[in-house]
Design a protein around this nucleic acid. Sequence first.
DNA 1: AATGAATGAGGCTTCATTCAT
DNA 2: GATGAATGAAGCCTCATTCAT
Lengths: 231, 231, 231, 231
Amino acid sequence: MIVRMGRPRTKSAPKLPTTTRGRRTREGLIVAGREILERQGWPGFTPEAVAQVAGVSYGTFYTYFESKEDLLHSVLRSVAGEMFTSSLVPPDTTDDPYTRLVESNRRYLRAWDRAAKVVRIVEQGAVADEGLRQMVLEIRELYVSRSTEGIRRLQEAGLANPGLEPRLTAIALGSMVEQVGHVIDTLAEAYDEDAVVDHLSRLWAAAIGLRGAPDEGWTADPRGSGSAAAG
Amino acid sequence: MIVRMGRPRTKSAPKLPTTTRGRRTREGLIVAGREILERQGWPGFTPEAVAQVAGVSYGTFYTYFESKEDLLHSVLRSVAGEMFTSSLVPPDTTDDPYTRLVESNRRYLRAWDRAAKVVRIVEQGAVADEGLRQMVLEIRELYVSRSTEGIRRLQEAGLANPGLEPRLTAIALGSMVEQVGHVIDTLAEAYDEDAVVDHLSRLWAAAIGLRGAPDEGWTADPRGSGSAAAG
Amino acid sequence: MIVRMGRPRTKSAPKLPTTTRGRRTREGLIVAGREILERQGWPGFTPEAVAQVAGVSYGTFYTYFESKEDLLHSVLRSVAGEMFTSSLVPPDTTDDPYTRLVESNRRYLRAWDRAAKVVRIVEQGAVADEGLRQMVLEIRELYVSRSTEGIRRLQEAGLANPGLEPRLTAIALGSMVEQVGHVIDTLAEAYDEDAVVDHLSRLWAAAIGLRGAPDEGWTADPRGSGSAAAG
Amino acid sequence: MIVRMGRPRTKSAPKLPTTTRGRRTREGLIVAGREILERQGWPGFTPEAVAQVAGVSYGTFYTYFESKEDLLHSVLRSVAGEMFTSSLVPPDTTDDPYTRLVESNRRYLRAWDRAAKVVRIVEQGAVADEGLRQMVLEIRELYVSRSTEGIRRLQEAGLANPGLEPRLTAIALGSMVEQVGHVIDTLAEAYDEDAVVDHLSRLWAAAIGLRGAPDEGWTADPRGSGSAAAG
DNA sequence: AATGAATGAGGCTTCATTCAT
DNA sequence: GATGAATGAAGCCTCATTCAT
């Protein structure tokens, strides 16, 4: 996807804008770049298209960015920032672990929904670009480490299966949520968000053996306690 | 486009080879195409590169394929075929559900490992190509439906939580396995296969509440029963 | 073709230039295209050759034209425009029909001389391009209808054979002039323009039975009145 | 149209076939070549297409022809031969000059109808190929000289305007007939053959002042004597 | 800063011709 | 002779980037 990524940068890096107008133009290009990536994918992500969507001439693109890849980095940074803020579960929520898990999964799913498009596109290019790979890794790490900590705390509180390695478990369950979002989106399976969030949360809870979760000791209630969503 | 000042585009579709030599050349191009896709991704997937890897001139490429995309279809078909055969769990294996699950996950993980690269690349292009989308969907469906059936049987046998919707569950857990393979591979998390397969299988089993699985009733054995692999 | 693994072909249509420089470059490409068509015919008409003659890089070609064929349209339009203006007989000329006829034929011959080359080339391609066919038709129609009117007026004035269908006659005699220009040019018959114009005019006049034309009642003067040019 | 025509022939010319089968294959290729030229024009005239229409493999093409252009020469020769035989007015026809003229024009028109397609295509290539130019010239010459002789005889017999230069006149009137055929065909003017032949013949006759032709002394009969065909 | 014209490396594809079988 | 696979020069076009205004 990304072709000439390793080439030596001999060029003077475009400086950050000093004026307000310049800053706005630059932001506009990043927003436009992200929109295009999300809507048209990598092949549509051309400086000309980005400039057009941003409403500036294509020459202007190079006033703010050294190259396409430079913009891609900025877009990815912006995506990462947004994801971080939008997916946090506010601290004033209930203390019930399962409820928090459900809420967390819902936010995660929504946040990834947009981010994943960009991340997946970037991953293709990351093969040849160490910088991109680092950034993707950092974004994932953000979630994995947060989730790892959550699992560890539950284990320490005796609320989750202590036999599980927390990080690998976090990776696995985070992968599940991310990929489900992608699969359902891409392949147009007709599940609604609530059904998906419900199932993911129950599977997640059961997987780590969360105490007090809906499916705990399902034998007692052969009909299950959750809503069995249909496809 | 305005005009094709030429004959009506009949574009004699590249015929399947009639001779053995031709068949071998064609196969070679598909193999080469797959290798390049896996190693260099879409941008490296040029007719010229493919032909070079296959050891023929680029003109030969067009003896057998209409276009780059035509070859992509063939590569994807080949990947699908290989995945199908290589990921089946031989019927003469044990009847213990958990053992079967472990074996199935191991095979799935291995098979997806190569296929996923191609599938992910193709997915990017699938946005604009109904044919590709169909093929990706079919490949996934293969696994989802097989897995859905497995879950349903376990539920009917009273061995798994009957409150789960089998297909959504299959999608979620399949997603987990697929994405874990990708994340670990791409982001170079240093887990070995056994640890990963073990954890995935335990998470999977616990998620569906599989009777007789290692983590069933983990409270009884606070140390857990599985090997807690570390990163 | 199977797939365009890329963004939906929006193919931002080459815009008309907004600056003077751009306009000049565009004109230059049209002029260059015409020159090449006339001198080297269709096979020489490559974007690269045109750009070279115009003194720009071939990339610039695509700044102004979507394709080779797009330029062809522009060239043809330019040829048509030039023909129209250059072949009009100024209104202040004599009223003597034969003198007007001679003048008209001379201009027609000259104008067609260059245009015909382009028109004939275009006709080959017109088989597959409705737009081109239309343009060729319009160019011809310009002359046919003008000529048809001329004949009709002469008939109504009692100066020409009223038994002739004006339009078919106009087509036939126009065809004669056009094709004579071509044959003489292509096959290098060594007639000079005056001799040709003289003969064509006399044949034309006699064909429609024009009153007062040189060959009217030729028996009275067995030596004829015109110059008998030799090959 | 014809690209690399001047390149030195270093190749051993394919010999004429010795066997009957070979001769038939060769003829078949010529016929196929002509069909393709007429139906699809120059761009469709590829060795592969020709071979396919002829029902042989494309390798076989080069058994009989050195190159595409070699075949073109053969096709043109075949067209020339056919035209010659098909357009002769049988000697046992009436001696009335006008009737012979009408018959001659009708045959000419029909014969050119097919030939002209090929001739016009070839003319495009003739720019760069001396051999082709010669052949086209010879085909035309056939008609021009025959027609020149006809006119000269009429003049000597006192039946046509002796003030006209016979060859230039022959070229002009022959051009008229040829081009009318083309214009009507290409631009789809809806005249039927009889109307066209009638008009062409009357124009031709009047142009040379043929004694005893329908429009001679049209003033005596203001309604004209011919059928005024309409479009 | 902004503009938009200009550049040219590089990609995809065609097709006339050659060659091994 | 016949076959059809193989070849590669040459064409068309895209698009990231530079540059003159």
